[in-house]
């Protein structure tokens, strides 16, 4: 563990908290992409299969929180707040994301075992899982401030993993090329969003695309 990874994980927790807080206080999931949320649940379920055979207090607790909160968000979106979700603006074709991640996972896993292939699938899928959400924001041309805070916190999580990987490489010469490539792609996808977030939202203006 190092400070970058801890900070990244905390941002991840904060993002989940912001999302659930937004939905429960406004009793609405407007502006949130159901498709992105469903992809995240798929990411966590396929990556954290090792919950069944390894235990580490910090990691296992976080994994359970991520799976549980993700399932809870989907429950809110399909149950109580379903009327506030507009599928007509959530139209990103996720089959290409799932298909692409599946192909990469089958071609280049570290080992050809079900758990390792699914782990690799989850890494690639996570790197692009935000796209339906960003696409939705782009389509509507604006987003509620709370939604932008959510997307920012989620992006900051993977961005902070980059210094974590540099630190791990320097201190224990450990590196995992797959995670790093996918993590950098993921961060790059957020970069436009980060830029607009910094220049608009943090200066107290509404998030609107130029």
């Amino acid at each position: 563990m190092n400070i970058f990874r801890l900070a990244g994980d905390l941002f991840h927790l904060i993002s989940i908290f912001i999302l659930i807080h937004k939905m429960t206080t406004s009793k609405s999931c407007s502006g949130i992409s159901f498709k992105s949320q469903a992809l995240y649940l798929l990411v966590y379920v396929t990556r954290y299969l090792d919950l069944f055979w390894t235990f580490a207090l910090y990691n296992s607790t976080m994994k359970i929180i991520f799976i549980g909160s993700s399932a809870y968000v989907l429950h809110l979106m399909t149950g109580p707040f379903k009327p506030t979700h507009d599928p007509n603006i959530d139209t990103f074709k996720v089959r290409y994301l799932i298909g692409g991640a599946a192909i990469l996972a089958l071609l280049f896993p570290y080992k050809w075992t079900p758990a390792e292939v699914l782990w690799t699938f989850s890494i690639w899928l996570e790197s692009v899982a935000i796209l339906p959400q960003l696409f939705m924001v782009q389509r509507t041309g604006a987003a509620e401030t709370i939604t932008t805070h959510y997307i920012f916190a989620l992006g900051a999580y993977r961005a902070l993993y980059i210094p974590n990987w540099i630190y791990r490489y320097l201190t224990s010469t450990f590196w995992d090329p797959l995670s790093i490539i996918a993590g950098v792609i993921q961060t790059v996808l957020y970069s436009d969003f980060f830029y607009i977030y910094y220049t608009k939202v943090l200066q107290g203006r509404k998030f609107e695309l130029p």
Partner: peptide, 10 residues
């Protein structure tokens, strides 16, 4: 911390 592994990250 045990042997570094990619599975020790979230």
């Amino acid at each position: 911390e045990a042997k570094p592994s990619r599975h020790d990250e979230l």
